[in-house]
């Protein structure tokens, strides 16, 4: 399909990318393109300028700090994360990345693109909320840090504003995590998903049930406590051809229990 006419820039530095994003109102960062190129085909998005981040090695690093903090560049692909020895410090990240779509998409799709597109069916927004990630957002005026729970603002909408760029994600140390999803076919789009992290207290983030991940904090990982916490969230998920609202509420509860169990059982 022919895209609408668009201009293209391939900046050589993050500073240059930020300058272009600031100068052009209709500029949009192009990460892996596994969502953006397709929505451009459908004319759902029509940026005037694409700022291709693929040449920026500064955004691709995966580093493990001495305290176990993991820093992942926004342009790290799912394949990069799944294959990274450093990222294995938080095993759930690579495990979930390996269930996103297929080899081809994993080779191009990035963690930054996944969270910035904030499609409510994406895997990583709830996961990053559960593990307590922090997002670093840069602009020409400097950097700011936003907690994952405050990063997702609405469908396709995040804290990254005009002229800004998500540069990296910081994930604290921890191993007791879980993720569960019901998908359209193996590794397909999520109908409902849940991520859990039991490092200190339990935090469960529910995906596909609202515009942004819904975070609940059950008193314990016991099934009853998790079910009660999900019920207490008063979910009102949308209905679509794949699942009714009622069925999604049911799935959210079941998947939260599964994710919490996996988190609790992980050694």
């Amino acid at each position: 399909m022919l895209l609408r006419e668009v201009e293209y820039a391939r900046p050589a530095s993050v500073a240059e990318a930020l300058a272009i994003l600031k100068q052009h109102d209709g500029a949009r960062a192009l990460a892996g393109g596994q969502t953006l190129i397709n929505v451009m085909k459908a004319r759902v998005a029509s940026p005037d300028v694409l700022v291709d981040l693929n040449g920026l090695d500064d955004l691709k690093g995966i580093e493990l700090g001495s305290d176990g903090t993991l820093t992942i560049g926004a342009m790290a692909t799912y394949t990069d994360i799944a294959g990274s020895a450093e990222a294995r410090a938080r095993p759930i990240l690579g495990e979930v990345c390996l269930t996103i779509a297929d080899v081809q998409v994993r080779n191009r799709g990035t963690i930054g693109g996944n969270v910035c597109s904030n499609d409510p069916t994406n895997h990583l927004p709830p996961l990053l909320c559960a593990v307590g990630a922090e997002m670093t957002i840069a602009s020409e005026d400097g950097e700011r840090t936003v907690a994952a729970a405050e990063f997702f603002l609405g469908v396709y909408l995040t804290a990254v504003g005009p002229g800004e760029l998500l540069t990296k994600l910081t994930i604290p140390a921890g191993k007791h995590d879980g993720f569960a999803a019901v998908t359209l076919g193996a590794d397909g789009t999520c109908i409902a998903n849940a991520a859990a992290s039991l490092n200190g207290s339990l935090r469960v983030a529910l995906g596909c049930v609202d515009a942004v991940p819904i975070v609940v904090q059950p008193a314990s990982a016991a099934e009853d406590a998790v079910r009660e916490a999900v019920r207490g969230a008063g979910l009102m998920p949308p209905s679509d051809v794949h699942a009714s609202s009622e069925y999604r509420i049911h799935l959210a509860e079941v998947l939260a229990v599964r994710a919490a169990r996996q988190a609790a059982e992980r050694s």
Partner: peptide
Amino acid sequence: CDTGNCGACSMIVDGQLVKSCMLLAVQ
């Protein structure tokens, strides 16, 4: 399909398998 689903356009670009309908030629 031209929507990134079917994989009929798969190519190996710099050693990596990709779907070439989700990559711009200039890239």
